[in-house]
Amino acid sequence: MKAQQASVVDRRSRVETGFAETLAGYTLAGPALVLIFALFILPGAAVLAIATTDWHLGAKTLSFVGAANFTSLFADRVFRAALFNTAVYVLMVVPSTLVLGLSLALLIESGKSLRAFYRAVHFLPFMTSLAAMAIVWEALLHPTIGLVNQVFGLIGLPTANWLRSEATVLPILAIIGTWQSLGLALVLFLAGLKAIPQDLYDAADIDGADGVLDRLRVVTLPSLAPVSLFVLIVVTLRAFAAFDIVQILTRGGPGDASVMLLYALYRESFEYLTTGYGAAIAVIFLVIVIALAMLQTRVVNSRTSRS
């Protein structure tokens, strides 16, 4: 009888202290939890909801239109151009960033002198305001007084109005995009190179693979494979999110030659005020990002399971 009473008391006190810990947990995490809900989860759900309506920003009424926004999106010439341009842009930026980043990383790592200097120089664009630098690029690419045309004219290369020509605008944007992301890829590759154990090189030496190219083929590149996949995804994500350079340098022009996903999202939602339509673009953008993130998770998982 007495023992029974005791155990009842014990259980109560246990619930109370468990409660105390839960209370502490929610007090500490509560503000963040509420804010994540208010600023991420609910807006995310709202985007999905708005994408199924014909709402115009500021309008008092809206109606449910189902997947109509998506069907008309894919019928829309401008959106298809945006999708196509983004794909082309990504396909130009990503390979060039990866190849250049890897080559420069190998080159920097192949010697001892000035490593930190070269790393810093190539990394600089990644952390400067792309808005400010886009203005500088505009000056560089200016048809008459820009450095690019001046130099090209001097050495006899063809000059152009780079940002106003349908043929050159996307490649030029891709060059600027590569210029900005290069430093990130470089630094990630450098970290990957540092992580290769010297033992592997020693083993390759003993096995007779002692030439520069042999070492590269037998040890370096295979060891870098996981990092490379990783860089691929990070750089791709950034390329898909290109906005500043379009907004400042081309506003999607000439024609629709440089409209990209985020710019289309911005224009539909905030300039044309066709909000439901803009939200549908946001949903498509989100789907792309999530697909890439899932790929990234799989890469990371396979990497950790391997090591």
Partner: peptide
């Protein structure tokens, strides 16, 4: 750490809570 059941006394005073 919280026990599932049982009590602890220090200097004759229950300290579980």
């Amino acid at each position: 750490e919280q026990q599932d059941c049982g009590t602890i006394e220090v200097a004759g005073v229950k300290v579980d809570r």
